[in-house]
């Protein structure tokens, strides 16, 4: 539990990368950022792995679903 906290304290950063960049809304058209936060198979990173805060993880979840619907990102990559 304390591992993540210590790790971020070590680097002297906030936890969420969207909060650090002061992103108000996660843009579902920004495929580069969305694909950076998903696996090669197209699965979303967990909060534990991405380090997102709850608010931005919820926005990221919606954004990746919009991007999948518009065929910008795959539902399942082979």
């Amino acid at each position: 539990m304390a591992y993540g906290k210590r790790r971020f304290q070590k680097y002297g950063r906030g936890r969420c990368r969207f909060s650090r960049a002061k992103v108000k809304y996660v843009d579902w058209k920004d495929i580069q950022t969305l694909s950076r936060l998903s696996t090669g198979q197209g699965k979303m990173f967990s909060r534990k792995r991405s380090g997102n805060c709850a608010r931005h993880q919820r926005q990221f979840k919606a954004a990746i679903k919009y991007a999948r619907f518009m065929a910008l990102m795959p539902y399942v990559a082979r």
């Binding site: 990368r17 960049a21 992103v23 058209k29 950022t33």
Partner: peptide
Amino acid sequence: EVTTMIDDEDDD
């Protein structure tokens, strides 16, 4: 313009 929300060097 669809800009990237996060810079490359900001990726931790």
